[in-house]
Simulated assay, not measured.
Amino acid sequence: MDGIDTYWLWLIAGLALALLEMIVPGVYLIWLAMAALATAVLAFVSDPPIAMQVIAWVSLSLIFAFSAKRWLRDRPIVSSDPLLNNRAGRLVGEIALVTQAIESGAGRVKVGDSEWIARGADAAEGTRVRITGSRGAELLVEPVALLGGEGAA
């Protein structure tokens, strides 16, 4: 482009994309930003025609994005709290109170200040049950053993 140093345009585009990645995180725009910054360096060093710069940006964007996808697939980020967004999963092992008798395998239990649909062995209202798992928004329960003072209320 006559009179305009294109590396400034690539630099501004790269910084704008990096800023957008921080505002709307999705781990995608950062690769486009890195490609734009690499293209800015290329444009500064060798000043190729604008068409070659665009081809370089598209190519680098694809290379960075697919390389990052492969890298993250092979080295997944492990959460320190895998049940963070799994409310029902966090309840496994807790004791619940049957508020609606569990008959034919279905009823309701109260855990804390919430009531949940429960599936498990038949139990009368007021019985204490242990949460053993979850299936969607339903809790899987079993009667609490009468050991250690736990049992029916």
Rank of each mutant, 00 (worst) to 15 (best):
L11C: 07
I12S: 08
G14L: 04
G14T: 03
A18P: 11
L20K: 03
E21T: 02
M22C: 15
I23R: 13
G26K: 08
V27H: 15
I30H: 10
I30E: 04
A36W: 01
T39K: 01
A40T: 12
A40K: 01
F44P: 00
D47N: 11
D47F: 12
P48L: 04
A51L: 12
V54K: 13
W57F: 10
W57T: 02
V58Q: 02
V58N: 06
V58M: 09
S59A: 15
L60V: 05
S61P: 01
S61A: 12
L62A: 08
I63K: 02
F64G: 03
A65W: 10
A65Q: 14
F66P: 02
S67A: 13
S67R: 05
W71N: 14
L72K: 06
L72D: 14
D74C: 08
D74F: 10
P76W: 06
P76H: 14
I77M: 12
I77D: 04
S80F: 15
P82G: 11
P82E: 04
L83T: 15
L83I: 09
L84Y: 07
N85G: 13
R87A: 14
R87L: 06
A88S: 09
A96M: 02
T99D: 02
A101W: 00
A101H: 01
I102D: 02
I102K: 00
I102M: 09
I102W: 00
E103T: 15
E103F: 14
S104T: 14
G105Q: 15
A106H: 07
K110I: 12
K110W: 01
K110P: 14
K110M: 10
V111W: 12
G112M: 13
G112R: 04
D113E: 10
S114L: 10
A118V: 05
A118M: 00
A118I: 07
G120R: 00
A124V: 11
A124L: 15
E125T: 13
E125V: 05
V129T: 08
R130G: 01
R130T: 06
R130I: 10
I131Q: 00
I131H: 00
I131S: 04
T132N: 04
